[in-house]
Amino acid sequence: MINITPVFASTNTKERTEENYLISSDIKITESNKNNILSTPAIDEKEKIYDFADLFTEEEEQKLYQKISQYIDSYQLDLALVTISQNNKSSPREYADDFYDYNNFGFNNTKDGLLFLIDMDNREIYMTTTGAAINMYNDYRINKALEQVYQYMTNQNYYQGVLQYIQIIGDYAKSGLPGKQDQKNLTTTICYSIIISLIITIIIMVILINKNKLVRKKTTAREYLNKDSVSMKNIGEILVSTNTVRHAINHSSSSGSSTHSGSSGRSHGGGGHRF
């Protein structure tokens, strides 16, 4: 029987050659990124799901495609999902950035969008953000999102993990840019004013009430000390014990979006989490 390959089989790659790099015209080809381009699979960027590691069933891929389409339509950010079993590049970050850049993902001139990579070789999930997505997903949001889904990968529940991931990034996009989601709202402003006023009033009243306290018990007698009579001898200083404990430092990043440049020269945000 002839196997009709659906859109979602997604491992169809075209061949890149030095004659035809199959890349977007705005990327300059140099000696240093030539190999990066050639080692990046050329795919059809409309498929959105590239399951090279074969982690999803066809049915799952269909459902994921629906979710991804919804996301793209709602927030005008491109979204690609890539799984690999072999990483021929130095890091998940490099793979994700190259895959995004050399396959012409992203909307507008700024190539707005993001890519989620499941790297089975390095056992790491990585998301790279480009253009408007860099601002939308700051380091905090990226870490939060990855933290919430990496466990699914650990438990080999890839489909649920990706569903969850799309849900989370959708929720973030819905709430707007970080720090701007607190829209001016009459009731919350009134609540804040009442709380501020309550605190300031209590502070002022405590100060005023304390002004009425002129009686304070004396518990020391320093003013009666005959300073010339003081003799204080050190008759023993023994080190009883010493101990050192150490705590692992959690390297959490700041609230901003940190960016780096991929081999293409484009700027990306992103972050990864091992699973």
């Binding site: 003081v230 204080m232 009883v240």
Partner: peptide, 8 residues
């Protein structure tokens, strides 16, 4: 941790 003895 130290034991400090003083004669006052």
């Amino acid at each position: 941790t130290y034991l400090s003895k003083r004669e006052a």
